[in-house]
Design a protein around this nucleic acid. Sequence first.
DNA 1: CGATGGATTGACAAAGGTCAAACTGTGTGG
DNA 2: CCACACAGTTTGACCTTTGTCAATCCATCG
Lengths: 235, 235
Amino acid sequence: MGFSSVACSGELVGRFSRDSSAEADCDSLQQLAVVARYDTDQPVYRYNDPAQYWFRVVAGAARKAALSGDGRRHIVDFLLPGDFFGFCPSNGHHFCVEATVAGTLVARYPRRSAEQLADSDPDVARHIRQATFESIARLQRRMLTLAGSSALEKVSAFLLEMADRTGVEGTRWICLPMSRSDIADYLAMAIETVSRTLTELRARRAITYRAARRVQICDREVLETVPMGWAGRTC
Amino acid sequence: MGFSSVACSGELVGRFSRDSSAEADCDSLQQLAVVARYDTDQPVYRYNDPAQYWFRVVAGAARKAALSGDGRRHIVDFLLPGDFFGFCPSNGHHFCVEATVAGTLVARYPRRSAEQLADSDPDVARHIRQATFESIARLQRRMLTLAGSSALEKVSAFLLEMADRTGVEGTRWICLPMSRSDIADYLAMAIETVSRTLTELRARRAITYRAARRVQICDREVLETVPMGWAGRTC
DNA sequence: CGATGGATTGACAAAGGTCAAACTGTGTGG
DNA sequence: CCACACAGTTTGACCTTTGTCAATCCATCG
């Protein structure tokens, strides 16, 4: 653990100072950012924490989850490098966000200041708007994954999503930054079914893997065909 | 049909001129709005339509849906009065939106102008930001509904959602603005299961109904207990 | 080289999907 | 005003899929 302040767990790493950012990020927004480092399962924020910040994953991965009264967990979103999160219409967070891999880096933007910045700088406002639109698009795409009728569909869609989001260009290797249990809670199915389905996909020669988290897509078409693909994906 | 222009189906009703809006809406944004009227199943926009407008439901209801290759349909969101929709990170819509009840009224905001307005007026920008945050919250809540493990959970959560969103204060009556088939596609289950589950809930005296779409909640607790309630709901 | 926690496999039961038939309520036309 | 037709809804019977419980496997790390 190390740090224990409610809203500020995670080890502070430093301010954002890369002026060589690949994406055309708002510099003025980046200057507000403070980056912190998290270990596996360490929370970025918890249920009911005040919504004081907006966040963005810099490296590693995190899960946004809700807990049910009877102990079940549902993962609403996996957050990967570049993803913004923590947007909230009310004053308190209603999910918790935890790192899923050690050494996850998350940038934190003080909400008040960021809002003020957005008010005075249309570029920032547009940037944030775009980020929320993308968040909406991701959620909607995810809903289609979740609505898939069979286990095969859901797992295939998940693998394709991960390939798109984490994929190193060209390579067919995916490094899944989460456990089978996380995947199960993400797809709303039993962990055993996730496992069985991956085995099935391997039997169909759609994927290979030796280590559980290092998956290689051998035959993308199989994965794409199984779920019959939704006509639309985004907004 | 009547009107056939791709992006502008629906019968034009007029500009927004209620200065007596209950909510503190941005007047400057409202002045951009043009309201159109739609019949049941009439599209507001279709898959791949250019994203020229943002929209907002004024009265009635609509569904945002995706179609799969094999003819299945998934409803990503029901849109009720007050809900904004059509936010899109890309240039074309990837869902279709259709009215689910006759006489649905939808306000349409030219995207270009609205974006310009947001750039010049921080109030408008903040307003839109808030609308997108709420859209995100709704989608996340919805994901929890969809992730519910049993049919009973999903249908209960759906009824509570509808009670919250359409509910006339005080009354326990819900007027469902959609067919069983729509509900099934929304909850990703078979229409027969929706029906059976409603019957089951009626047997448990949680709800009553004579007409299929006019449901009365008799025992809210039963509905709230069944799904064990997720700890968090929103962001 | 064992210990530990995650992952896999197996056997079984239960939930929900599918197909088919019956029912109901609404609107139409006689 | 009634009879009928149609679309939407409900119910029934059956079977596939997935969840559950339990045992085994495996990789990693002391």
